[in-house]
Design a protein around this nucleic acid. Sequence first.
DNA 1: GACAAATGATACTAACATGGTATCATTACA
DNA 2: TGTAATGATACCATGTTAGTATCATTTGTC
Lengths: 133, 133
Amino acid sequence: MKLITRDTDYAIRALVFIGRSDKAIISVSELVRELKIPKPFLRKILQILNKKNLLRSYKGNKGGFILKKGLEKIFLLDLIKIFQGSLRLNECFLRKSICPNIKTCLLKKKIDKIQKLVTSELENIDLKSLFEK
Amino acid sequence: MKLITRDTDYAIRALVFIGRSDKAIISVSELVRELKIPKPFLRKILQILNKKNLLRSYKGNKGGFILKKGLEKIFLLDLIKIFQGSLRLNECFLRKSICPNIKTCLLKKKIDKIQKLVTSELENIDLKSLFEK
DNA sequence: GACAAATGATACTAACATGGTATCATTACA
DNA sequence: TGTAATGATACCATGTTAGTATCATTTGTC
């Protein structure tokens, strides 16, 4: 089981690189040189981040991306939601018709508790904290 | 992201049913009637549980399975390990040659902490606790 | 002993998710 | 006007999950 998939991971690294750079605009080509991520894949990821309002893009020659908000305002949970869908650890496999106690199912409740734990951790990790001790 | 896959889920339900039954031996056919799980799939799951020493099997007519240890001694983490491999939330995607700070990577450390949290929860949930308030 | 009903072993398959490519259109700086 | 960038979108490869199919073996019951 993975908590973070590859696209989320790449997104983190790209955002952190952009945020820490002193250049105004960073292009995908530049990111690829630094981060060794396949270019078309990274492009796709940045396009998504652009649509989700974490980046702003500039088209045309000398174009690229800038952060739309500070790294300290971007949280791991945001990125996981974007690339992996909302965190729902507690989905039940048995339909209501089969499992009569879906409302009271203790397994569901216990997993729900774990999910709350994980979520509360992830929503407090911002990207800035990933490179500052 | 799923914390528990379908085979783990089915295994839980089958084990709990066997453990709560007052019959001596439970066959797959019986379980299928009660739990509405596809028979060949459930057979495969029980064969694995047998090999992993959670069940003991009896072949032949009137055969079936019994628990090899009490439900209070079977923990969620055991089953997750059997069907989903060991829980490793913190695997890193970038090779050492690319990511120089693999040893000090803060992301890895933070996810490691979450993994410890989740593990310590899962290893304390036994199957008996799933139907006793 | 024969039959039926069970598990053991194992190979196969279908569907979905993940990780990535490829291509063409559009934009904008120099 | 050329070139280097992003936008949009369709496609593809691989792995994992979920499930089937089949044949062999065992064992209780008549």
